[in-house]
């Protein structure tokens, strides 16, 4: 069986890493920002004109695209060095984001 098409560019990995962490990080940060600014009364949920969940996703997608574009500018060697640190950095970031997501619903 012919092997799958698989690339080997560290820069591509950096683009994906930047975009994915920016998407999740931006979304959670926006939620925290909203919580710090004061919550609407939950009983008024139907009166709110916009759905905060949706606009947070739209904003996070813009941030993810921007971060991915920044990742594309990295030299291959720097991207490779960054990816080596992802082994400890990424699980730590995921743990922090999960904790925040649970603490600030």
């Amino acid at each position: 069986m012919k092997g799958p098409w698989i690339g080997q560019s560290p820069r591509a990995g950096a683009i994906v890493l930047f975009a994915a962490t920016a998407l999740a990080g931006s979304y959670i940060t926006l939620r925290l920002w909203q919580a710090l600014g004061g919550e609407a009364d939950p009983r008024d949920v139907l009166a709110q004109p916009r759905i905060p969940f949706s606009w947070r996703i739209y904003a996070a997608l813009v941030h993810a695209a921007t971060a991915g574009a920044i990742g594309a500018l990295l030299p291959e060697r720097l991207a490779e060095a960054l990816l080596r640190h992802a082994a400890w950095f990424l699980p730590l970031l995921v743990f922090v984001l999960v904790t925040l997501a649970v603490l600030v619903p």
Binding site: I6, G7, Q8, S9, P10, R11, G13, A86, A87
Partner: peptide, 14 residues
């Protein structure tokens, strides 16, 4: 990342 850079060890680990 697996599709775009999986043959590189650091990307594969990522």
């Amino acid at each position: 990342s697996l599709r775009l850079g999986g043959h590189h060890p650091a990307v594969r680990r990522l």
